[in-house]
Amino acid sequence: MANYIVRRLLWGIVILILVSLIVFFAIRMVPGDPLTLFVSRTQESGFSFTKAQLDALRRRFGLDKPVIVQYVDWISNMLRGDLGESIYYRQDVAKLIKERLPVTLYLGIIGFLLSLTVGTTAGLLAGMRRATWIDNIIVVISYIGIAIPVFWLGYLLIFAFGLKLRILPIGGYTSPFEDFWYSLRQIIMPVICMVLPGIAGMARQMRSSYLEVAGQDYIRTAWAKGLTEKAVVMKHILKNSLIPIVTLLGMSIGGIFGGSVLVENVFAIPGMGRFLVQGIFQQDYVIMQANTFLMAVMIILSNLIVDISYGWFDPRIRYD
C-alpha cells in the first residue's frame, strides 16, 4: 500500500507540472506577449499606451525576461503563496482569490454532498426496482439532468421562484455567518443548478453498477442460500457497486468547478468561476493563469485522494 501511495503521489507531481506548463504556455500562445491582449482590450475602450509605458509595464510584470525564467519565477512565487499582481485591479491576486475561493468551496461542498447522497440513493432505488415506475422516473430525470443547460435551468428557477412567486432572492451572495437564513434562501437556486447534473450522473452510474453487480454469480449464491433481501442488497450488492462511484467522485469535483463558472454568472455570486470569466473579459492574464491553475490543482489533488482511497477499497488496483 505504501508503495502504491508513493507511486501515485509522484505521478501527481508530474501531472501538476504538466498542468502548470499547459496553463503557462496556453496564455503565451498568442503572438507577442500576454500584455498585447490586455492592451488591445483597453484600446477598444479608447485608451492607448505609449511605447515607454508598455515597456514599463513589461518590466513590472517580468515579461521582459526569457520565457523559461518567467516560468520558473511563476512557479517559485506560487510555491511561496504569491500569485502575482493583477493588471486590471493592481492588487495581489492571492488576496482577491482568498475572498472568492471560500464562496465557491462553500457552494461546492454543499453541492458535492447533495449529489453524492441524493444521486446514489436515487440510483440504488432505480436499480432495486428496475423497470417499475420509480426506475422510469429516475432514468428520465437523470437524462434531463445531464442534458439541461444549467444556465437555462437557472433562468427557469429565477422566473418561477424569483419573479413570479417571489419567494427566493434572484441572486447575490451573503455569508452564512452574516445572515444565515437569508444566505440559505439565496443559495437554494444556485445549488439546485449546480447539483442537478451531478445527481443525474451519479444516479446513472449507481444504477448501472448496481445492476451489473446484481447479475453476478455470487449474488445468485447469496440469494440461493436464503439470505433476506436486506442482507443481499446491503451487504453484497451495495458494497461492491459503490466501487465505481468512488472514481466518479473525483470527476464530480471537476464538474462542480465547471458548473460554478456558469452558475455564479447566472446568480451574480462572487466566486472563482465569476472571477475567471471577468478576468477573461478584462484580458488580465495574471488572473486567468492563477485561477485556472488553482482549479486544476484542486481537481488533481482530489483525484489523487480518490485514487488512493480506491486502492484501499479495491486491493486489486494496487498491484497494477
Binding site: L37, G254, I280, M288, I299
Partner: peptide, 22 residues
C-alpha cells in the same frame, strides 16, 4: 500523462481559457 493533465481541467474552464486567449 499530457492527457491526464488536460483532464485536470473542467472542460468548460479549459475551453474558456483557450477561447479567451485565442
Amino acid at each position: 500523462r499530457f492527457m491526464d493533465a488536460l483532464m485536470g481541467f473542467p472542460m468548460i474552464v479549459l475551453a474558456l481559457l483557450l477561447a479567451g486567449v485565442l
